[in-house]
């Protein structure tokens, strides 16, 4: 296992060449993704790709999210962390309008998501749910479903090409005709991420992509996500429970507490004090192969 990989280096060295393999026709789908990508490629890459501004959300009268402002740039993986029930998944669902925020705005590039159609949002933002339903559909057709926001009446060669390409990258080609109700949970997770990739989003939202996976599958799926983010120069926002996996793969960390953002920081900002404030348990943060590792005390 190439554990301590050099993703920081890869991230900046990677030219846009691989982006073009998957985003073959950035202009062919009208305004959506194409326009937005162009805009940002000319600009500084560090400009925010997706920005949530003062977002509030409530179920009935229970406030779930209060004044959330967070942004993610191209080539970045953002991990949303915090204890159970703090609103991580809710925040993620607000970011592509699966749940409509009660206040605040979500911007992708300079477009307001609340003014976009569901289809246009889906062309820009991909979402992978925490739990995925399986049906009697083949792996290929399941991934092809990711082309839904771009499909007209007929499936084009371009759609097929993207699916073949993505299946190959995700190591799913030799099971493309197997039914997804007969594959393992880890494989299904990979299929679902793959489906979100062929959607050609500029931002990928993942709700606990590693839950219910064993250690090697966790590494495998996060490596794939890192690879996709680096190659396609897109961004990923994911909710996580495993701090150490998050520290290994993400660039930026949002710690949530009581429906609010407690702190936004990078690796160096993750201290024992912060973890204790957020999770309420005492931990040590030790360094192993130049990587911070969070270890609970007794």
């Amino acid at each position: 296992m190439t554990g301590d990989h050099t993703h920081d280096g890869v991230m900046h060295e990677h030219p846009h060449s691989h982006r073009d393999v998957v985003h073959t026709h950035p202009h062919s789908h009208g305004g959506g993704c194409g326009g937005c990508c162009e805009h940002h490629r000319d600009d500084d890459d560090c400009l925010a790709l997706l920005r949530a501004d003062a977002v509030e959300f409530e179920y009935g009268t229970t406030k779930i999210l209060k004044d959330i402002t967070v942004e993610v740039s191209r080539g970045e993986i953002l991990a949303i962390l915090g204890p159970n029930g703090v609103g991580k998944s809710t925040l993620l669902k607000c970011m592509n309008m699966i749940l409509k925020p009660k206040a605040g705005t979500i911007l992708i590039g300079d477009m307001d998501l609340s003014k976009m159609s569901g289809r246009d949002i889906a062309r820009n933002v991909g979402y992978v749910a925490q739990r995925n339903e399986s049906a009697r559909m083949t792996v290929f057709d399941t991934v092809l479903l990711g082309r839904k926001p771009h499909l007209g009446w007929k499936i084009t060669e371009h759609d097929y090409d993207l699916v073949y390409d993505a299946l190959e990258k995700f190591g799913l080609s030799n099971m493309q005709l197997r039914y997804i109700d007969e594959i393992s949970g880890g494989e299904l997770q990979r299929v679902c991420v793959c489906r979100a990739i062929v959607q050609e989003p500029s931002v990928l939202l993942l709700d606990e992509p590693t839950s219910a996976l064993d250690m090697s599958r966790q590494m495998e799926i996060l490596k794939l996500i890192r690879h996709v983010v680096d190659c396609h120069n897109c961004a990923t926002i994911m909710t996580m429970h495993d701090l150490n996996l998050a520290l290994r793969f993400a660039d930026k960390f949002v710690f949530m507490k009581g429906g609010k953002i407690h702190k936004i920081c990078d690796k160096s900002g993750v201290t024992p004090e912060l973890i204790e404030e957020v999770y309420g348990i005492a931990v040590d943060v030790i360094s192993h192969n130049n990587m911070p590792i969070v270890v609970p005390k007794f």
Binding site: Y127, A129, R131, N132, P149
Partner: peptide
């Protein structure tokens, strides 16, 4: 899945 469907627009 409902959320996946919404995510697909």
């Amino acid at each position: 899945g409902e959320e996946t469907a919404k995510g697909l627009g």
